[in-house]
Write a protein that binds this DNA or RNA. Structure first.
Lengths: 135, 135
DNA sequence: GCATTTAATCATATTGACATGATAATAGCA
DNA sequence: TGCTATTATCATGTCAATATGATTAAATGC
C-alpha cells in the first residue's frame, strides 16, 4: 500500500550499495540482484535511472558496476524514491478531490496534511546509513 | 503515491453519500458518478463491492440506489479503504525485505513503524462525517 | 401482466507496472 | 588488435488496475 515494487527494489539496492561503500570497486548489477533475489534486468533499468538522477554512479566495462554518488549518511531515502514515484512531492488531497486544496479544504484536510508531512519528513530525514547500521 | 484510484473513488462516493444521509431515498450510481465526475460503470462495481462488505446498502428497481449502512460518524475511512486495498493491514517492512521483521529489524524499522501506525490511526479514527463537516 | 428504472453481471479494451531476453556500446586487459 | 566483462538500450511479454459498453435480474408503478 505505500511504495511501488520499483521503489522497494531501489531502496534495497541502495542499502546494499551502502554496505559496500568502503570497497574500492563498484558493484555489478548481477551481484546486487543475486544478493537481494530480485530480477536482474529489471533492477538494471532501475539503477540506470538512478544513475541518470545522480543518486548512483555507473562504470562500464570489466571492473565496472554501480556505486553511491555520496556517503550513505548523505543520501536520504527521498532522493532514491523521489525519481521513481511519479507523484512524489505532489500535495494531494487524500481523496484526489479536484476541489480540495489548501485554500478550500475538506474537514479532514488538516489532519491528513499532518500525517502526510510526517511521511515526507521520514523520507527526508532517514538516510541509507540508517538502513544499514544495526540497532 | 498512497491510495489507489479505486480507493479514492470509493472515499469520494462515501463522502457524497454521507452528505445525503438524511434523505429518505437511496442515491443511484448515476447521480453519484455525475456529481463526482467519475466513470459510472467503474464506480458501480466499486459500490457493489462495498455493499458486499456491508459498508453500503443497495436497493434495486425504481427509487433504488445506494446508501450508507450506518451514520457517517460511525463509518471510519478504514472500513471503506480496507476492502479495496489488498495489502491493507499487512505489517510490512518499508523495503519489502523478507528478512526485516519485528524480530530482526533493520535500523529504520522502528521509525517506520511509528510513521506507519500514525497512518493507520488516521484511517481508523477519521470518519465520513469528518470529510463533510465544514471547519 | 408490462414498461420502466435501477443494480448486478458479463465481456472486452486500454494502460502502465513489472518482468524477460537479446543486442549494442564501452572499457579494461592480454 | 581482439577478447571479455560490464552497463546501456531495445523489443517484447504478462498481468493487474482502470475503464467502457452491453446484457441480465429485480423492484416499482401503471
Amino acid at each position: 500500500m505505500f511504495l511501488s515494487q520499483t521503489s522497494r527494489y531501489a531502496l534495497q539496492a541502495a542499502a546494499f550499495l551502502a554496505e559496500r561503500w568502503a570497497e574500492e570497486r563498484p558493484t555489478p548489477v548481477g551481484d546486487i540482484a543475486a544478493g537481494l533475489g530480485v530480477p536482474r534486468n529489471y533492477l538494471s533499468k532501475i539503477l540506470h535511472q538512478l544513475a541518470r538522477e545522480r543518486v548512483l554512479v555507473s562504470e562500464r566495462g570489466p571492473k565496472g558496476g554501480f556505486r553511491l554518488v555520496a556517503a550513505p549518511d548523505e543520501i536520504a531515502l527521498a532522493s532514491v524514491v523521489g525519481p521513481l514515484e511519479p507523484a512524489y512531492g505532489e500535495r494531494h488531497c487524500l481523496l484526489g478531490r479536484p476541489t480540495c486544496s489548501d485554500d478550500d479544504p475538506c474537514a479532514a484536510h488538516d489532519r491528513w496534511q499532518s500525517v502526510s508531512s510526517e511521511l515526507t519528513a521520514f523520507l527526508e530525514s532517514t538516510t541509507l546509513a540508517d538502513l544499514v547500521r544495526g540497532p
